[in-house]
């Protein structure tokens, strides 16, 4: 299993927890527009969960720069090294 596959599994788990679903399919292109209920409040929940699970802190610029799941995966990959 590559690190990317593992990372997407972990992110999928977080998204399923945050959106209370079991069937989310995370792709790099997936963004807030595609998911019902992904508002600014959920966005913060996702960020906090990611920070807790990966033991990292995301700064304001990084969060503002996120357009989709792919961007999030990139930031986590960079910071969680």
């Amino acid at each position: 299993m590559t690190d990317q596959v593992r990372l997407y599994e972990q992110l999928t788990e977080i998204f399923n927890d945050v959106f209370l679903r079991e069937d989310m399919k995370l792709t790099p292109e997936l963004s807030a527009r595609d998911v019902e209920g992904w508002d600014s409040f959920k966005q913060i929940e996702i960020m906090v969960s990611v920070e807790e699970r990966f033991g990292i802190k995301l700064n304001t610029r990084e969060i503002d720069g996120l357009r989709n799941v792919g961007d999030l995966a990139d930031v986590v990959t960079r910071k969680a090294r």
């Binding site: 977080i14 945050v18 209370l20 929940e45 969960s49 807790e52």
Partner: peptide
């Protein structure tokens, strides 16, 4: 429970 699990339990 962490924050996410707390929210999930509450909502469920």
């Amino acid at each position: 429970l962490d924050f996410t699990h707390t929210s999930a339990l509450d909502e469920t």
